[in-house]
Design a protein around this nucleic acid. Structure first.
Length: 493
RNA sequence: GCCGCAUUCGUCUAGCUGGCCUAGGACACCGCCCUCUCAAGGCGGAGAUCGGGGGUUCGAAUCCCCCAUGCGGUACCA
């Protein structure tokens, strides 16, 4: 617990797209950095060449940027502690490994995969503790020379004492202690010359002067081993906080990267890019994610970004895993959409409509906004609310036209009068349409709902739409008249 | 198997320096109001004996112990 400057990092491996769990981890780190005027470092842990996914890095960077989590040091912008790809720092790890070997804290191991597999099998069969048996810990120089002569490329392992225990401190959970017998002589440097995660993080966090580590709780079990590495180097560990796991909406198991269906049939987004595609606003996702694992007072749930920076409290982060609630996210996203300015929302809706192939223009989008704003949870929800505007010919059951306590006859009369009435409305705008139709309903001795219900179906093909007067304006006078006439024809025969 | 972490309404959670908790808020759900349908909004309702069992105490969701369950780890993956 020193008062050195706050430096935190998000250190993903480019083995897949940016996942919400990772995004939440990044967010907490980012908030903490901003709150303390510290640095948010992005480091790419690309040490597993077998799992490398080419476009994962781009996705990661795009995702973070979309969420507004810009890094102060890292890929593309560099920084004083670079390079920020572990694959560009190999020399550093080799040096570190050599240092530990020189100190007697690590050793080269020439055991191949066959022997390790065999060992594991034996141990499992005899119910012994699984783990490396220290076979290469005390090789003679002759043995080493033999192995080298055979061309075997060694790994470097940490020599963990068999006795005693190892303790590390978690900011949220307190001291966590494990018996050293649970720890094995873990590999620090792989035979391909790349470091393992354990060596990489420790060396980099130290050299990059990281002050606080926030990462998922699935890493707790590796923490004692990391502590041993810190100790071996004689370094002080950064302050650590392990963040609770994000569970499936069912609450069973981690939110998986596998595609699952939501209750309403939509595909469950789990990658940030999918939330983006599904029409969630980044500010809503950020607000929501902040609350998965943290709460301010148990009451307040809506926070602007600057409020989050101000109020986020790392020590209040929960220790128990929580399910990801898409329903709550939808609720929150809807609230954020409602807060958007008209021009802003119109622009975003226009993008979605165009993407889906509707020939909408900005004027249309601006008119649509007040009609749909309170009715959409995500941006694409706008489509079923306005798609009929672009249809050439509406498909619907003629019976839908006939409202309660009406018949085909009276409906035809009503639609006919409505057509005449609307033909005369000028300008064809919400207010004047409303005045005309209200008067007509009264004149026909119909309830407003009956009249509007029939017109609604005739002009939209649906019995549920945004408020009708504005909707008719949006459709346009010509189309409205034509659709009314077609409806009459449908009823007639 | 072994090790670790966790356990409050269906879900996210507040509470955890013990009494103000007959456990608060939010999502979802139900009802009413508003209303041209649907929403949004307002009001109200139902919903947890705080995983179970032992303690400590005048008093425990809050402190201690045991058990159960869930999750995670147990790799030359991160």
């Amino acid at each position: 617990m020193t008062d050195r400057p706050v430096r935190v990092r998000f250190a993903p491996s480019p083995t897949g797209y940016l996942h919400v769990g990772g995004a939440r981890t990044a967010l907490y780190n980012w908030l903490f950095a901003r709150q303390h005027g510290g640095a948010f470092v992005l480091r790419i842990e690309d040490t597993d060449r077998t799992r490398y996914v080419p476009d994962a890095l781009t996705d990661l960077l795009d995702g973070l940027r979309w969420l507004g989590l810009c890094w102060d040091e890292g890929p593309e912008i560099g920084g004083p502690y670079g390079p920020y790809h572990q694959s560009d720092r190999l020399e550093l790890y080799h040096q570190a490994a050599e240092d530990l070997i020189a100190k007697g804290a690590a050793y080269r191991c020439y055991c191949g995969p066959e022997r390790l597999a065999q060992l594991r099998e034996q141990q499992r069969a005899s119910k012994q503790r699984e783990g490396y048996d220290g076979h290469c810990r005390h090789l003679t120089s002759q043995q080493i020379a033999d192995y080298e002569a055979q061309g075997i490329r060694p790994v470097v392992r940490l020599a963990v004492p068999d006795e005693g225990e190892t303790t590390f401190h978690d900011l949220l959970r307190g001291d966590i202690t494990v018996d050293n017998r649970q720890l094995t002589d873990l590999v620090l440097l792989k035979s391909d010359g790349f470091p393992t995660y354990s060596l990489g993080v420790v060396v980099d966090d130290h050299h990059m002067q990281i002050s606080h580590i926030m990462r998922g709780e699935e890493w707790i079990s590796t923490a004692p081993a990391l502590q041993r590495i810190y100790d071996a180097f004689g370094w002080e560990s950064p302050i650590q906080a392990h963040l609770p796991t994000i569970l499936d909406p069912s609450g069973e198991g981690k939110l998986s990267k596998r595609k699952k269906k939501l209750a309403d049939g939509r595909e469950m987004p789990t990658f940030v890019r999918e939330f983006r595609q599904a029409g969630y606003l980044p500010e809503a996702l950020v607000n929501f994610l902040a609350l998965v694992g943290w709460s301010y007072d148990g009451q307040t749930e809506f926070f602007r970004r600057d409020e989050l920076i101000d109020l986020f409290d790392l020590t209040r982060v929960s220790t128990s895993a929580g399910a990801f609630s898409y329903e709550k996210l939808d609720h929150m996203n809807a609230a954020y959409i409602r807060q958007l300015g008209t021009n802003d929302l119109a622009g975003r809706l226009l993008q979605v409509l165009r993407r889906e192939g509707y020939p909408a223009d900005l004027g249309f989008a601006l008119k649509a906004v007040p009609l749909v704003r309170e009715r959409i949870k995500t941006l694409p929800d706008v489509i079923p609310l306005v798609d009929y505007c672009f249809a050439d010919r509406l498909q619907y059951e003629p019976e839908l036209l006939v409202q309660k306590k009406m018949d085909a006859e009276s409906t035809m009369v009503a639609l006919h009068k409505a057509a005449n009435c609307l033909r005369a409305v000028s300008p064809f705008e919400e207010a004047s349409i409303e005045a005309a139709l209200r008067a007509l309903a009264e004149g026909l001795d119909l309830k407003l709902g009956q009249l509007l219900g029939a017109i609604r179906v005739a002009c939209t093909g649906k019995s549920v739409t945004p408020p009708l007067f504005g909707t008719l304006e949006l459709i346009g006078q010509q189309k409205v008249i034509a659709r009314l006439e077609r409806a009459i024809a449908l009823l007639a025969g």
